[in-house]
Amino acid sequence: MASVTMKEQDMRSVTARSRAGSVLAKGMTYLFLMVMALIVLFPFYWMINSSLKTLAEYRLSVPTFWPKTVIWSNYAEAFTTARLGQLFLNTLLVGVVSTLLSLVITVLSAFAFARLEFKGKNVMFGALLATMMIPGELFTITNYRTVNDFGWLNTYTVLIVPFLVSVCYIYLLRQNFLQIPNELYLAAKVDGTSDFKYLWTVMIPLSLPTLISITILKMMGAWNSYIWPRLVANDAAHQMVTNGLRNAFKDAAGDQTNYPVQMAAVALVSFPLFLVYIFLRKYIMKGVSRSGIKG
């Protein structure tokens, strides 16, 4: 009898101790996550904080953590200094056109690979996947030369055409198409439905989430692309937003730079991305985790 009570007591003290331990561990976990979250968010906070200061306040030796006087005009100045209106329009045009064309090409290719039977299908698909292994830098040298020979330098075409086909997206959509039962297709064929009608009324609606993911990632790609636009369309008329932003504030660490205005420009370029993230986060995360596209 006595030994049983002893055991119960032991048990109780053990559970109490482990409960205390787990509360402590929970607290530590939250503390760790909060600190990391603050570090992740800090650059964004600092960008907005700096963008609203006067230059004099920005240069104070003891920094202020919120502007004493909020200077909204920095944003107007940034908009004109960096010619953001023009840059936004260029980027939007390139982004929308290349996304639409790219979607058409991706849907057609994915349909052929998922639904049609043809000789050499597997070989073709394998070859397509193999190109994904090769780093893009290998293509750039020849592509630069090719577009030069085509006379495409400093046009919108050069920003749109070379990257219309993304093997990654074809693969992603094909996987999605394969999940739609083949019987549906055969039934539609028996009813005399054309391929296009079937694509439009059955397959596209059923794989809409994937198509939305592709659209968002493609648009973000246009917004963030730097290397290729910088190389082939660096004139004022065709500059894209990332390239234009970097050029508008050339010396990164200069003493003369008007940082508040620069930070306002950076914020203006970042806000559209934040908006997309806030409202379409689900699609971005799904698209990224399934296609493995790394920024």
Binding site: M47, M220, W223, T242, L245, R246, M263, V266, S270, F274
Partner: peptide
């Protein structure tokens, strides 16, 4: 989802 040039400037 950020622009690596823009945040690099930050």
């Amino acid at each position: 989802v950020t622009n690596s040039i823009a945040i690099g400037m930050v």
